[in-house]
Amino acid sequence: MKKMLSVAALLALSLAQAHPITSAASNAKDVNFDLVNTRVTNSGTQLVFQIDVSDRAGRLKPTRAGKLAGSSVYSYVWPTTLNSSTVGFEADQGVLALAVTSHPDFDDTPLFDEDGDSKVDNDGGLWHSHWVVLVPDDACGKGNLKVKDIPEGAKPRLPATWPGLPILIDSPGYEPVISSKTVTVKVPLKELGFKTDFQFDGVTAGLRVNESVHNPLLCVVDVFDVASGNLSLPGKIGK
């Protein structure tokens, strides 16, 4: 009779099937955004998204501009192969990515009071999470990406926690945890329809609100580091 696998053997098998992305250090100017390891692991009820940087994760935040137009966003991002419909957008809209962002000039989490001061419109500078749909747009610079705009008058399918901006962005309220070198976000598996067969990558980037404040609204203007080096989304979750 075949012997049953031990818990240790099952764990080793699971880890062997996982494909985190290890990156060379010193690829980014700032250690805060210098990717060294990107992974997504399955805890059974949650997917745990993690990015390790060289040092001081989350320490560097954008300088306040004093207005929305032209303001900056810093981000830690996990682009995925998940369909945009997984989190409540229309299907096949672009690259669905989980992002942890900071932007002191505006607040796009109207359902949440991150700093506990009984105000929900002044927390944008604190690190918080989003689902975003990314697409290329040369209006952001040749070959650059943006968060996909919603055309004026359009009424697409949107998640219940969409914050009201005319772009494909969701504010699900997943609270990021940031330690000295690691950014962690836990996503309930049920909110992804229990999908675990997707691939991912890791990116650190700077975005900017366009002066027009729409079409494009939010452009990726500075990629600090890419875990895979070429945005090939090679990361896999262990079974």
Rank of each mutant, 00 (worst) to 15 (best):
P188W: 12
I167S: 09
S84E: 03
D115A: 13
A57F: 13
G66N: 02
K146D: 05
K67F: 09
Q93R: 06
L192G: 14
V223F: 08
E90W: 00
L35Q: 05
T38D: 04
E90M: 01
I178G: 14
S75G: 15
A16C: 06
A24R: 07
A28N: 09
F112V: 12
D170A: 15
K67Y: 09
N83K: 05
A69F: 04
G70N: 09
V187M: 03
P104T: 00
I150P: 11
G94V: 03
S212C: 01
L168P: 11
G202V: 09
T80G: 10
I21W: 06
G143Q: 11
L126V: 10
N32S: 10
P136M: 00
D121F: 14
W162T: 11
N215L: 06
N83G: 15
D137N: 01
T45W: 11
V53D: 03
G229K: 03
S232Q: 05
T63G: 11
P176W: 07
L165P: 11
G153P: 13
Y76E: 06
V87K: 00
D149Q: 09
G94A: 01
F33M: 02
V187E: 06
V223N: 07
V40S: 00
K146V: 05
I150H: 04
L192S: 12
R64L: 15
F106Y: 14
S102E: 02
G116H: 10
T38G: 04
W131I: 14
V7A: 13
N32R: 00
F33D: 03
K29N: 06
D121K: 11
V40G: 03
V95L: 01
